[in-house]
Computed example of a mutant assay.
Amino acid sequence: MSGATDQTKTPSLSTAQRLAWLRLIRSENVGPHTFRDLVNHFGSAETALDALPDLSKKGGKTRIRVCPVSEAEAELDAHDRFGARLVAMGEPDYPSHLRHVDGPPPLLSVVGGDVLRLPKTIAIVGARNASLSGRKLAGQISQDLGSEGFVIVSGLARGIDAAAHEAALASGTVAAFAGGIDVLYPPEHGQLLAQILKMGGNAISEMPIGWKPRGRDFPRRNRLISGMALGVVIIEAAKGSGSLHTARFALEQNREIFAVPGSPLDPRSEGANTLIRQGAMLIRHAGDVLEALSGRIAPELPFDQTFQSGASSDGYEASEPTDKAREKIISALGPTPVELDELIRFSEEPARVVHIILLELELAGRLERHRGQRVSLLY
C-alpha cells in the first residue's frame, strides 16, 4: 500500500457486525461523525444500537427510529441481487485515501472490480455543458494520467465527467453516485457505466440502495470524489457550480487543486479562473499534475479516523454526564458555531463527557456539525 498513515485498518467485518454497522448508520440522526463517536464510545455498533433510545431521550427527543434488523437484511439482500457489495471502512475495497477525510462514510456500496484499492488516484470534474475543447482536454489529461498508473475518479455526469471516464476505461476509473448504487444518473450513461464495470472499474455510493438523488445529495457525492483522490483537476467550471464545491472539499481535505485556465469571455471558465487567482495550481496538461505530485501516492496530514476495537475501560456509566454538566454545555451552545475544543475548555468537563452530551443532542436532532470541528445548537 501507499505511504498513507493506515490508522483505520480493521479486520473484515463478520456478517453480524456488517448488519449492525448498516443498522446504525441507517438509524435516525446518525451520520458518519456520530457513527464513529458511538462506536468508539461503546466499543461496537451492536452496543451503540442498544444505547440509542436512552441517549436520544436524554438529549430531549423521546423517541428515535432505530433501523430494524429486517430493513437492514433487506438492504443486504438487495445488494446481493444487484451484484453489489457493502464495504466497511478499513476493509481492502474501501478507497485508501477516503479513510483519511473528516467524517468518512463508514459503509460504501460498491460495484465492479478492485481499482478502488489503488492509491494513485486523481479526480477530474467540470462543466456538464462543456465545450468540445474542454471535453478533448479532459480526455487527454485523463488518458495521459491513466498511462502513468493513475485511476481517474469522477461523478459520471454529462460533459467533463463523461469525457474523463471514457478516456480512462482501459487504465481504470471510478464513478461516484449521488443516489443509490442501483439508481443511474443521468440515465443516458448506462452504456458508459457498463463499459466502466466491464473494464474493471467501479461505481460507489454511500446512499441506501434504491435512493433517488436529491439536489443536496450531489455535494455529498462531490465530497467522496475529492476524498478518494490525491488531487482534483477542474476544467470549465462556472461560478457556483458543483465542481467548485468539489474544489472546496478538496481544500478542506488537504488535497491538491489543479485548474485549467479558460477564456475570460466564457462563463464556463469563470470558476476555474477564480480558483487560479485564489491559489489553485494552473495546469496545461497531465505533465503539470505529475510534476506537482512528484511521485507522491498519499495525501499529507491525513485525519485520524481511528475506530476503537473494544469498549473503553471506564465504560459508559463511568462517563455518564451529570445534569449540571448537560445544563452547562447546552447553555454554552447557540445558533453560532463554536469550536469543540473551546467548548471542552469552557465546560471544565472531561472531553469524553462533552462528546456524550453532544451525541445526546445530535441524536435528538438538536445539534448541527460544521466544518472545522465546530458545532451549534438548533433549538
Rank of each mutant, 00 (worst) to 15 (best):
S12Q: 15
Q17G: 09
S27D: 03
L38R: 03
T47E: 12
P53T: 11
D54C: 10
G59Y: 12
K61E: 15
R65D: 15
A74Q: 10
H79N: 13
H79S: 13
R81K: 14
A84E: 05
L86M: 13
A88D: 12
M89W: 07
G90F: 04
Y94F: 15
P95K: 04
P106F: 13
L116P: 03
P119Y: 05
T121M: 10
I124A: 02
S131I: 07
K136C: 07
V151I: 13
I152V: 15
D161P: 04
A163K: 03
A164P: 02
E166C: 02
F177Y: 11
G180E: 05
D182E: 11
A194I: 01
Q195A: 08
A203Y: 00
S205M: 14
P208M: 05
D217H: 15
R221Q: 03
R223K: 05
I225N: 01
L230A: 10
V233T: 06
E236P: 05
A237D: 04
S243P: 07
H245S: 12
A250T: 04
E252Y: 06
D266C: 08
D266M: 09
I276V: 03
Q278D: 13
G287W: 00
S294G: 01
R296T: 12
A311W: 02
S312V: 13
Y316Q: 01
E317S: 08
T322G: 07
R326H: 11
I329K: 10
P335R: 15
I344K: 11
F346H: 14
F346L: 14
S347F: 11
E349H: 09
A351S: 10
A351D: 15
A351L: 13
L361G: 07
V375K: 11
V375N: 05
